[in-house]
Design a protein around this nucleic acid. Structure first.
Lengths: 230, 230
DNA sequence: ATTACTAGCTGTCGAGTAA
DNA sequence: TTTACTCGACAGCTAGTAA
């Protein structure tokens, strides 16, 4: 996982992403790609081979070119580099991001985690509130899913993992946010992003000092907005 | 200006930025830097030499190491790459950025530009309003200056340059924004970022369909907030 | 037109050395 | 300790060729 990819490889991978090989496969030929990365056709072709061999892209060869799409692993590498740029340029505290989604019922694990003392104390120190047991889960609308990816490349507030006698608890990060209730100020809460859990990407977990379902009289399917502030 | 820097060079430059060589010089030795870029001391040292030779960093050698700081040109290259990542990951329309600053009197050129027909028509089509002649200039507070840099790496709405018989008019980009007046909805306006003009970095130029100074009864020194939405 | 070899060259890397 | 050479080894690039 921690293989060091050369700068030139990263460059090629990034250019592929810019050519649109992110959501769905994009068609290109080595000569086309050679122009994009300003090198010879041979090098362009070989780069594509290597990126495939290393598992960063999927490739389908046709008679007149090839179809390329980044793999999950390829996207991860890109995100890591993007994260570094966030560190360099976005140290400011002023960016806001809004999520829209519908309340859904989670798996109930949220309650387990928010009551673990090791997590609870970190939330108190780093967020300034004691989380109400349980999380509010949102199913995000399509636009917010893209916004959700941005949190992957933002720093956020680190929550450390730990070990108990029985098992290990993963770390993650969180982002202070406000749950917007019509007109008023918003309820200070936080979005939780577990580091390793590959939770479905369209679900957002929120912790709050209060029982949001009761406080805002929410039921499943109600739409709410969460404003993340960094 | 359009020299192609190798991916490995960009990698080194980025690591230097992450080590803090952005605002002020940072002290490091080749062996320290070698660890950061996971290569030999020789390569690390040579990279630093080359980055200096190409004009991407300033270097001051001391007996026990060296002091490094990125040059303007180095930062430009980094920004360009950062911009590409914005293109890949931040295609969503939901990020907001807030600027705080005090009203100042500009040089009066704003009025000249906003009344040029070639610009005016672009604003009408791309922003949906006819700009009031003249710009509102803000002197940004220190935090907002950092936020201002973010606009450099965001895409925005392109404004094309053009030529008249007498001179050429540069292009630029703009960002729709709301000028926040206490409580209410905010006045739909736009921040203007000229492409080439090296305007002082702590000044933000705003155009609006209305005469903001009159509408909000502003005088020099009054603090206002502008919310940019992408 | 493609992609994918092979061959040869160029340039980059890192050990060793000097200052 | 440093930085900055030299030089041998090798990895990556491009031209040419095949399929």
């Amino acid at each position: 996982m921690k293989i060091k990819m050369s700068g030139d490889m990263m460059f090629s991978l990034r250019k592929l992403a810019l050519l649109g090989a992110v959501e769905q496969p994009v068609k290109l030929s080595s000569v086309h790609f050679a122009e994009a990365i300003k090198s010879s056709v041979q090098t362009a072709g070989r780069r594509l081979q290597e990126l495939e061999r290393e598992g960063f892209v999927h490739r389908r060869i046709t008679a007149d070119g090839q179809w390329i799409i980044l793999t999950k692993s390829g996207m991860e590498h890109l995100k890591e580099e993007c994260y570094e740029y966030q560190e360099i340029f976005f140290t400011t505290q002023t960016v806001e991001l809004e999520f829209v989604g519908c309340v859904i019922t989670g798996l109930g694990e949220g309650e387990y985690y928010t009551t673990r003392d090791e997590y609870k104390r970190q939330f108190e120190v780093k967020l300034g509130f004691t989380p109400f047991p349980g999380t509010l889960n949102l199913r995000l609308d399509s636009q917010s899913i893209a916004a959700r990816e941005i949190l992957d490349v933002w720093k956020g507030i680190e929550i450390a993992g730990f070990e108990s006698e029985k098992r290990t608890f993963g770390g993650g990060k969180c982002f202070p946010c406000k749950i917007m209730n019509d007109g008023a100020e918003g309820i200070k809460s936080a979005v939780i992003i577990p580091a390793r859990t590959h939770y479905p990407e369209d679900v957002l977990e929120i912790i709050s000092p209060v029982y949001l379902r009761c406080e805002l009289q929410l039921k499943d399917g109600d739409e709410i907005r969460a404003r993340v502030m960094t």
